[in-house]
Amino acid sequence: MIGNAVRAMRIATGEEADDVIDDGKSAAAKELGPKGGKKRAANMTPERRAEIAKKAAEKRWGGRLE
């Protein structure tokens, strides 16, 4: 925690460069990303959500569901 504060101070004073890693996503995509999943779930039927959840569980647990 203290190390991060020292780094922030060095960046602010110009002693150290602020190297921001570009993840390739646009700012709009980052801003709207968390909202998209909630909106998608709200528009789905409960049956479709259950189908997607079951498929995800099968992928995660390797088909070991009973």
Rank of each mutant, 00 (worst) to 15 (best):
G33Y: 02
I2C: 07
A28C: 11
G24N: 09
I52N: 06
I52P: 02
D23N: 14
G14I: 04
G37S: 12
I21N: 08
M9R: 13
K35T: 08
R10L: 15
A17Q: 15
G14W: 05
T45K: 11
G37K: 05
A42G: 09
A29R: 07
R7V: 08
G14C: 07
T13N: 14
A29K: 07
T45A: 13
R48G: 00
K30E: 08
D18A: 12
I21V: 15
A12M: 14
M9N: 13
K35S: 10
G24F: 03
E15V: 04
K54V: 01
D23R: 04
M1W: 10
D19I: 10
M9F: 15
G37Y: 05
G36Y: 05
S26K: 04
E31C: 00
E15I: 04
A50F: 05
A29C: 02
G3V: 00
V20L: 10
T13C: 10
T45Q: 10
V20E: 14
E47W: 01
T45I: 05
P34S: 05
I2D: 13
N4Y: 00
G37W: 07
K38S: 12
D23W: 06
N43Y: 00
P46R: 06
G3L: 05
N4T: 02
I52G: 00
E15N: 11
R10S: 11
A5L: 14
V20H: 06
N43T: 13
D18I: 02
G14F: 02
N4G: 05
A27T: 12
M44D: 03
M44G: 01
R7H: 02
G37R: 04
P34Y: 04
A41T: 02
D22L: 03
R48W: 00
A53G: 08
E47M: 02
E47K: 03
